[in-house]
Nucleic acid binder design. Structure first.
Lengths: 147, 147
DNA sequence: ATAATAATAGTAATGATTACTATTAACAAA
DNA sequence: TTTGTTAATAGTAATCATTACTATTATTAT
């Protein structure tokens, strides 16, 4: 068949996925690089970056576009919310069912976090980009790579 | 009095604040730089960066730590939510009262945005940093600069 | 007007990420 | 198994956003 549609299961990819799924710390690319390097000492940082983007594009892992200076990645595909520390930038998962309406005291008891702010971000396609897409005609069928 | 507590109202600052408040596009530092440059052709990009951080630290403007590769700033201090386009990265305000529970159709009608995702981010101080802060003793009184 | 000091312009440095390219590895077909 | 095709990789260079540095300029209190 079309070999260009195949995802090559390289050892690099396997180890990157495995180590990301072991962690629950939503690591940055360089943090994961340090972990993966223990198993693959010759791997390069660029390979980690490239594969994290590649795997996120395929929906195998998730890229968090949360605030902060570095990109972060998550091996857990289940829908869940995050909580970020303003001091050290660490990101934790919130317990399932934590709602925007829960009081700070309850979150403090469940997570140990002292809440400073809740932020709601909606992500979508703006009117101008929707028009531009429509104008491009029906040429692009199927999946659109957004990275 | 203590001159170190004064905020010098330089022309640079006045123009930066004025132009940011005129815009409702949540500009990046370089976008605002291009606008401000029309009035102050000799201003440097560093001055724009420095003053945006400075003014955000004073609570005169807001720094958005929303996803995306560049920092964005907002002259509107009222509490409100944002909507970001995944294609062009533009950020708009959501109409007041737009709730996480509103259906996509209603948001589409009000804003023209096709919703892809809603993200809830909690921001706070993690247990480890709270402990570290407590251990530092009561030495730091009053306002803490977090930038 | 003068002194003290904060702010600025211009430039260099930094840090995260991406691009480039010769080499290597994975897979399909023989 | 060997070979051919092509994707993936390592290592490095380049890029982009942001921050740091420093001599000079501007602001404010006196």
């Amino acid at each position: 068949m079309q070999p260009q549609n195949n995802i090559r299961l390289t050892n690099r990819r396997k180890v990157i996925i495995e180590e990301l799924r072991k962690l629950h710390t939503h690591p940055t690319a360089d943090e994961l690089y340090e972990v993966v390097r223990k198993r693959l000492p010759r791997i390069s940082l660029g390979t980690v970056y490239r594969n994290l983007e590649f795997l996120a594009g395929k929906g195998i892992i998730r890229k968090l576009e949360i605030g902060g200076t570095q990109k972060r990645f998550d091996g857990d595909l289940d829908i869940h919310q995050h909580i970020r520390c303003t001091e050290c930038e660490r990101i934790d998962d919130l317990p399932a069912g934590t709602a925007v309406t829960r009081c700070d005291r309850e979150i403090l008891e469940n997570t140990g976090y002292e809440i400073i702010e809740r932020r709601v971000e909606f992500i979508g396609i703006c009117p101008a980009c929707r028009a531009r897409r429509a104008g491009e005609g029906p040429g692009h069928s199927g999946v659109v790579d957004t990275h």
